[in-house]
Computed example of a mutant assay.
Amino acid sequence: MSVDLIIDKRIHDLGGGFQVGRLLPYRARRMVGPFVFFDHMGPMDLAPGISKSLDVRPHPHIGLSTVTYLYDGAMTHRDSLGFKMEIRPGEVNWMTAGKGITHSERFERARLEGAHMHGIQAWVALPNEAEEVDPRFTHHVGHDLPTWSEMGVKGRLIAGEMDGLKAGVPTHSPLFYQHLEMIPGAKHTVSTAYTERALYVVRGHLDINGLELEAGQMAVLKAGSPVDIRAIAESTVMVLGGEPVGERFLLWNFVSSSKDRLAQAAEDWRQQRMKLPVGDELEFIPLPDSAMPPSKT
């Protein structure tokens, strides 16, 4: 058996009616390599003039890199470093929070024109030595994201190194992240280059060495042997993994190897000690009650 665990997406409301399908973290599997968070956004149709309540208002991060990847639609990113960037399908926004950053994600183009929104947002935990690096934002298109096509499979390497290709995204630990488009009957082998690997079926239907996987399911693969996947129907598949970075704790939007550091970040946000995104300072997401530091008595 080449599959260690099957994870079904769970619907999670980000507020304002914006729902996602969450795969990671999962109670039986918190991480895959350094990937500590994995959300499937949409697909959903947004009409012109949609409410701003659907936007993800300014919020903070520490200890991670975020990667937004779209199949359809567009989102506008603003952050506390002063970057404003619209992300479009097949491009990558890679934001390294390190010691702290704030950002917002808004549906500005959809509000004007309407849009069919569909994409993935993942978080990559930083290794111990990089958890407190200075924050950084980079945007990547074209040659930074190598593509290939063979035997009914079209692929793009979003980040890291895999199958002889290397993406131009600045990462901090060994990892890979791929987007595959597969026609019915097409096959692909997931190599053993990394200790931990998983694949997620965005749409379609796969066979994994005799086990069927449907849209909305993630398969965490067993280590040590190549895994052959075959598309039963036309399929969109994300393949990801890497080397473990050690145990990580999550508190709201914060990731760290230290619970004390999480508490400090929560208090910094509660006390409004973190700079808001440039040009987006009029609102923010308050620290939720679940992340509030305990009261002193």
Score class of each variant (00 low, 15 high):
Gly15Ala: 04
Gly15Asp: 02
Phe18Thr: 01
Gly21Lys: 07
Phe35Gln: 06
Met41Lys: 01
Pro48Ala: 01
Ser51Ala: 10
Pro58Ala: 06
Ile62Trp: 02
Ile62Arg: 02
Gly63Cys: 08
Thr68Gln: 09
Tyr69Met: 04
Leu70Ser: 06
Tyr71Ile: 08
Met75Gly: 05
His77Gln: 02
Leu81Glu: 01
Phe83Trp: 12
Phe83Glu: 14
Gly90Arg: 14
Gly90Ile: 15
Val92Phe: 07
Thr96Glu: 04
His103Phe: 02
Gly114Met: 02
Met117Cys: 00
Ile120Met: 12
Glu132Tyr: 04
Val133His: 04
Val141Gln: 15
Asp144Val: 07
Val153Arg: 01
Ala159Leu: 08
Glu161Val: 12
Pro170Gly: 01
Ser173Met: 09
Pro174Met: 00
Phe176Ala: 08
His179Thr: 08
Glu181Thr: 14
Thr189Ser: 13
Thr189Asn: 11
Ser191Phe: 13
Arg197Gln: 04
Arg197His: 09
Leu199Cys: 03
Gly204Ala: 06
Glu212Met: 15
Gln217Asp: 00
Gly224Arg: 07
Pro226Ile: 04
Ile232Ser: 00
Ile232Asn: 02
Ile232Met: 01
Ala233Ile: 04
Glu234Trp: 10
Val245Cys: 00
Gly246Ser: 10
Phe254Met: 07
Ser256Ile: 05
Ser256Asn: 03
Ser258Pro: 07
Leu276Gly: 04
Val278Ser: 01
Asp280Trp: 08
Glu281Thr: 12
Glu281Gly: 07
Glu283Val: 11
Leu287Arg: 07
Ser290Ala: 11
